[in-house]
Design a protein around this nucleic acid. Structure first.
Lengths: 213, 213
DNA sequence: TCCTACCGACCTACTGGTAGGTAGGGAGAA
DNA sequence: TTCTCCCTACCTACCAGTAGGTCGGTAGGA
């Protein structure tokens, strides 16, 4: 439970290696589709050794999710905690969120799996964890719309739309790769996707495009 | 493989009942998270009886997916096969797709699961099945943009965005229900969501809103 | 008399988890 | 220094439970 302070000294503790391997396996195959043997094999140890570090599969999954919330959702929350106004603020959060997603595709996939399973899978209440960020985003959007800086939309609908548009291109990447003749994870593809999302959202939100041809 | 003609006579053949139950179970728990016992219990028979109708779990899953493609993707393809022009055509497809999703939330969830798993899970190549529709949609969008009826966007990026925005609100419904204080499946909620998607897409695509206040 | 639909009993493989044991490193005492 | 003690990390062997799938048999309608 309590993290020992030797985390600072050890370069990569076995626990961390296990969590990283488990995150990848769970993202790949889901909770039910991943056996403790799979994870142990990825680490290079036997299952009982793995269970020496984590009391149960469920507990391991919980820690994996803590990791996701801290090093994936965290940076996005930080960016969202800014104080900017208007489109610039949205843009900053969008770019940050996109970069975090691009840097951690496994995180996105597992997050998505959890969302599909209801977000309250195993002692995890994803919605409750994300709700503060969601609510403040709604408040921000409403304020900006009232101030006339954004076109009027339903703020929470808008967020759901953005959420879906952003996450889907990462969580469904292997599928989408079969629709377009390109690796969605390639730099050029990512760059194009980000620019599209920014331009698309800006067009929908801001009254007049600043420099449309 | 070949559907027997007695489908026409029987009001609901055991096969169909099994497929329907399996679709629900798979949507709920995923392929790995669903046992044949679960499905058999939902139907009201024993596992061996179920395996009398389908040779294996994998074959059953395949037939479930055929069902999804035929009675879920099919109607959307039909709507997309129209000959309209400009926003009206997009709108028609969007509304149809939305209604199909709303009427078959299990289908959406299972489709989403499959997309996350890569779309080529068990002899199913989802991307290949959807690709013709996708390609013709890209061609349509490109044509309309070239004709100046839509703002310029990358057509395939636009489709991915729309795909994500539309499907996510259904596939992640149980999670999103925890973000907003409302059942996303309620009629009023669905209506608002659809109107938002239409308005949002129209704003982004069409140069000037036809009747903005 | 078949044939279809169904069932109980059984099989093997694998699941999460436990029991018990061992190698090795550090601390302390002689 | 060396012997002992203990603790951590890991192992093999095993457990009960459940997975998908097979076998042999039966009830009942055509």
């Amino acid at each position: 439970m309590v993290k020992p302070p030797d985390d600072l000294v050890a370069p990569a503790s076995t626990r961390d290696v296990i969590i990283a391997a488990a995150l990848h396996c769970f993202a790949e195959g889901g909770y039910e589709g991943t056996s403790l043997n799979d994870i142990a094999a990825a680490v290079g140890i036997r299952r009982p050794s793995l269970l020496h570090h984590f009391a149960s599969k469920e507990e391991l999954y919980g820690e994996v999710f803590e990791r996701i919330l801290s090093d994936f959702v965290g940076p996005i929350e930080d960016a969202a905690a800014g104080t900017g106004e208007g489109w610039a603020r949205i843009d900053e959060v969008l770019v940050t969120a996109f970069e975090v997603c691009a840097a951690n595709p496994d995180h996105v996939r597992l997050l998505r799996r959890e969302a599909i399973d209801g977000g309250a899978h195993l002692g995890i209440d994803l919605a409750a964890a994300l709700r503060p960020m969601f609510d403040s985003a709604v408040a921000f959007l409403r304020r900006e719309m009232d101030a006339g800086r954004f076109r009027p939309h339903d703020p929470s609908e808008l967020l759901v739309t953005g959420y879906g548009a952003l996450l889907s291109s990462f969580s469904d990447a292997p599928f989408l790769a079969g629709l377009v003749d390109e690796d969605p994870g390639s730099p050029v593809s990512l760059q194009r996707r980000l620019e599209h999302l920014r331009e698309f959202l800006r067009t929908a939100l801001v009254d007049a495009p600043p420099s449309a041809p």
